[in-house]
Simulated scan of single mutants.
Amino acid sequence: MSDVGASDGVTSAASRTPVLREPAHQVSRQAVPFWTVSALLGDGVVVVAAALAYFLIPDVPGWTGLVVLALALAAAAHVALMPRIRFRVHRWEVSDTAVHTREGWIGRETRIAPLSRVQTVDSRQGALMRLFGLASITVTTASAAGPITVDCLDADVARDVVARLTEITAATEGDAT
């Protein structure tokens, strides 16, 4: 993997200002079905609860049915669109000098953390993630912005990234502050 740093960007000849490039790697393709099932489960609970309330509570105003229908349509759009948009946006890269991520599906957030600031590297794999062969890594830094998380990597890739980050940060001088 290439380094993330000022020398990695494209430099404008006129201004000599480095331009930040996007991180090199996408998350696993399994992220799309994982995010779809996650959204379906979460949104499904809300829609079913709203529908049950509508049908089981006596004397509910008639317009409440339209609210439940609108909620169901919004949930369907969320389940259909969010995973695909999120997959196109989420990117990550780990180099010998930094961790670089970009995420979001409505808003966008780009984070770069120098490895000299890394305090811990953790991995997480919930039950649903295990079904899809995915894992996430969290890099905690000495930053007020909080940790950097790379969601939905193939489990083997996540293990390799954690091992690589551990090796690099162990060899980095400094106290991560």
Rank of each mutant, 00 (worst) to 15 (best):
D154F: 01
W63C: 04
V121P: 00
L56H: 09
T166A: 06
H78G: 03
E22Y: 11
V99W: 05
A170Y: 08
R16N: 15
A49P: 01
E103V: 02
L73V: 14
V94E: 01
A98R: 00
V47E: 01
V150G: 02
T138A: 10
L81T: 09
A113W: 03
A170H: 12
T172W: 02
V46D: 08
R124G: 07
E173Q: 12
T110V: 14
A145R: 12
A75K: 06
R130Q: 13
D175E: 14
T97E: 12
V89M: 13
H100G: 08
A53R: 06
W92V: 01
T138S: 15
D156P: 07
V4I: 15
D96E: 15
T172S: 13
E103Q: 12
G146M: 07
T172Y: 06
S143H: 02
T120Q: 11
D8K: 08
T141F: 05
A76V: 07
P114W: 06
V45G: 04
D43F: 04
T177P: 03
S2I: 10
T138C: 03
R130W: 12
T149Q: 07
W105Y: 15
Q26D: 09
F132S: 00
A158V: 04
L153P: 05
R86T: 04
G5N: 14
E167S: 13
A50G: 03
G62Y: 10
D156W: 09
M82W: 07
A39D: 12
V118I: 08
G9F: 15
V27E: 01
V118A: 10
A70H: 06
S143K: 04
I57H: 05
D3M: 05
P23F: 04
E22N: 08
T177R: 13
V60E: 03
F132D: 00
T138E: 14
M129P: 03
V79C: 11
S28A: 15
I57V: 15
T140Q: 07
H78Q: 04
V150F: 08
T141V: 11
A14E: 13
R117I: 04
A163C: 03
T64K: 00
R91T: 12
S15W: 11
S15H: 12
A171D: 12
T11L: 11
E173Y: 10
T17D: 07
D59K: 04
T36Q: 09
A80C: 09
R29Y: 10
G107E: 08
E103P: 00
P23M: 02
V67C: 06
A51K: 04
W92T: 02
R130K: 13
R130D: 04
L40Q: 02
V19F: 14
D160Q: 14
S28V: 07
T172H: 07
T97V: 06
G9D: 10
S38Q: 11
S136R: 03
R130H: 06
A171E: 13
Y54K: 01
V67S: 05
D43Q: 13
A39T: 05
G65L: 09
L115Y: 02
R88I: 01
D8F: 04
T138Y: 03
A14G: 10
A176W: 06
V157S: 05
L69S: 00
L52K: 01
Q119D: 12
